[in-house]
Amino acid sequence: MNKKIIILIVFAAPLLVIFLSLFIGRYPVSIARVLQVLWSGITASTWGQPDVYNTLIWQIRMPRAILGAMVGGCLAISGAAFQGLFRNPLVSSGILGVSAGAGFGAALSILIFHSVTGATYVFAFAFGLLAVFLSYLISKIYNSSPTIMLVLGGVIVGSIFSALISFAKYAADPYEELPAIVFWLMGSLASSSYKDILVAGIPMFIGISGLVLIRWRINVLSMGDREAHALGINLVVDKGLVIVCSTLAAAGAVCVSGVIGWVGLVIPHIARMIVGNDNRVLIPASLSLGACFLVLVDDVGRIITGAEMPLGILTSLVGAPFFIWLLKKTKAGGW
């Protein structure tokens, strides 16, 4: 396929999906009405649209779709980067403990402030980073095979924070705090606002940009330490950059959306089946595909039940059959 067409698809697809999702939701709004509201918003005219529609489209559906795209893209791109870096197709964005750490951070803040507040984001983000940093410290204890030690460190830290999450649930007030913790952990985009986009967008943007820029080096790093070194790569700097960028992207995503599984593990594989393994293409493709996937899944979640269906449940329920279908269709082409 023509290179330019691919680039166009990568950029255009998430925008298209975001646009389409403005038409979808429980509250019935006609297509014409959505277009009118969008137009009056863009032209900043006061051309009499009822406030309820303005709020619905511009303050609820729009930020939710944008944030969903950012979160999905971040989880997928950091998963793809980690899979390449650790030469292991089974790792995901949570491999170094960022999800478990963020989950505990959120639970802790809910225990302290009794509900989900602005501090929840801050705690989730900080503990997500802390978890990865601890994994890194553990990997330094024994120097001989740093990559494996780092993954092992991630497993250890992840299990510690999972235990702490359970402890937080155990200690929580079962009527207010416990449900808040449980729902946060299942992941949701329901309360998205532009403020979330701006605040969490900073680490996500830094992470994504870094990974997109360094993407070819991930190919070389996936040759293993000795070969990458012999090919002229500064392992400390380049691996460090990939880890920091992936962590920023994943932590930025998790702190606003809660723990959303599946995306960081499987979207990179789906992208592989479509565009191949070269990270020059795979990294942007994962970003785009992750963004589209999460927005679409969130749309499904809004339609099928009256209440908000937590995203973490749906990503697997929707994603797994899709993955199987794709496996059948491509005959596992990327592999």
Binding site: R217, N219, V220, S222, M223, L231, N277, D278, G334
Partner: peptide, 15 residues
């Protein structure tokens, strides 16, 4: 590990 194309592998020599 990953099924890169042969030419992609050789290109890594230019890192």
């Amino acid at each position: 590990t990953f099924p890169y194309k042969v030419l992609d592998i050789v290109q890594m020599g230019r890192a």
